[in-house]
Amino acid sequence: MRFLGRRAVFYLIALFVAITINFMIPRLMSGDPVQMMFARFQGRMDPASVESLYKTFGFVDGPITEQYASYLANLLQGNLGTSIAWFPAPVSQVLGVGLAWTIRLLGVATLISFSLGMFLGIRAAWKRGRFVDAFVVPITGLFGAFPYFWLAMIMLYVFALKLDWFPLGHAASLDINQDWTNPQYVLSVIYHMILPATTIILTAVGGWLLGMRNSMINVLSADYVALAQAKGLSDRRVKYAYAARNAMLPSITGFAMSLGFIVGGAIVTEVVFSYPGIGYTLLTAINARDYPLMQGCFLLITMAVLGANFLADAAYVVLDPRVRS
């Protein structure tokens, strides 16, 4: 438990750094940040509301420490400001909608690509030079080298435009009653998810696969694996309960690094498929020069990534008894 406590402190520090970066970015740019960020609110909001929006981003009269305090105080109350693109909706509300879609899409895709990568990695290491090792490893490596957005474009072109098997974008059909108790709606959501999820899986699986394969190869030459085989344990048992469990540990630690890439990939995949998640929201914000929404997106994505990392740490505790003490 001390391990998880230390990790929690670390993620809080990371979050604090991200918040500070968010505070600094507008102040480091050339030009007047207040003018840049809020000019488009003039005339749409009454002066008092604009004034309170200044406070939200720490643009108060006074030294930078005072500005920072004002910014932090507003953030702690969950106040992220008002969106321009979705005026007059508050940023937090816009983000909530996007986040739900992204978590669904990315959650499914990450779960599948991770399991698939682990499974194939175990196979590749167990039977060196055979089918999975000789063909699947290089092919997924090739997919990993593709720019995510380009693979998404090709998928869209081939499977949605040319073959017409899948919809051209969005998260669900608009002419169906948007209600989770409606089975038709659920089916439509799944149907719309297949193409973007496949794109993310194809690009992400190679990394998991290769990492697992290499780590498994090293573990398989360990003495305790030889002992397990000498004892006459079944291949299955040796493979999964002895070798794979230990070989997985670096992949779990690597989760932190991989997740950053996967989130990046998911952002552009959402853009290509017009999938209404947080990445698509971020791009809409950029194009609309919606600075409050941009900053909110960054904070939310960071918080989600830190949270997912914490979950990975918890998984590590389950898999590796050594950190439990």
């Binding site: 970066i21 968010n22 507008p26 997740l259 950053g260 990046g264 971020l282 994505i301 960071t302």
Partner: peptide, 14 residues
Amino acid sequence: VIPALPLIIVISGF
């Protein structure tokens, strides 16, 4: 641990 691409996108947006 801070996701790079979103940060780069936000900076490029500014």
